[in-house]
Amino acid sequence: MMSGSTILFYLLATLIISCGVLSVLTRQIFRAAIYVLFTLIGIAGMYFWLQYEFLAAVQIVVYVGGIIVLIIFSIFLTQQAGEKLAKQQLDRKIFAGLAAFCGFALTIVQVLQHGFKMGTETPIVPTVENIGQRMLDVNNSGYAFPFEIVSILLLAALVGCIVIALRSKPEVNLK
């Protein structure tokens, strides 16, 4: 008799893998975006399953609400509905499949041979309070400095976007 959580894990794993495979194989670009979306939602579900609720919510907010919507918008603006992507060349497919399979086999063998030492410390519940206090801690190996770096990076990206958007078109001389 399997417990509910085990069933849930296998369901999520199936969702992630099958949607991932479909997203790289489909020839309709919008469907590919939707399959990627389902993969990301499956990964968010996996975070929920691992009880990292905050990260799951961040995953959904950033990926589903931000990145996938951005990708879909760029599809809307550049592609025609009903148009299919060009067929991939067979040799390219074989090469890519072989490379991916070899890499996968190599890594999985490595992982299986390496005996991981399971942690025995008392686990911390990753509540929002804990996350905030640990991340912005400046004394014992907190992540305040990287946090600031990332926020400066985001700010730089924002400023860059505004500069690109503000660039006026070169004036056309009608004469």
Binding site: F30, I34, L37, I41, E53, F54, A56, A57, V58, I60, V61, V64, G65, I68, V69, I72, I75, F76, A81, V128
Partner: peptide
Amino acid sequence: IGVLYVSAVSSIMVISILMAGW
């Protein structure tokens, strides 16, 4: 993360609208 959960999941809503539109 109750309130964050609501605002996160409600953003999936936009995908269904985009999907329907396309």
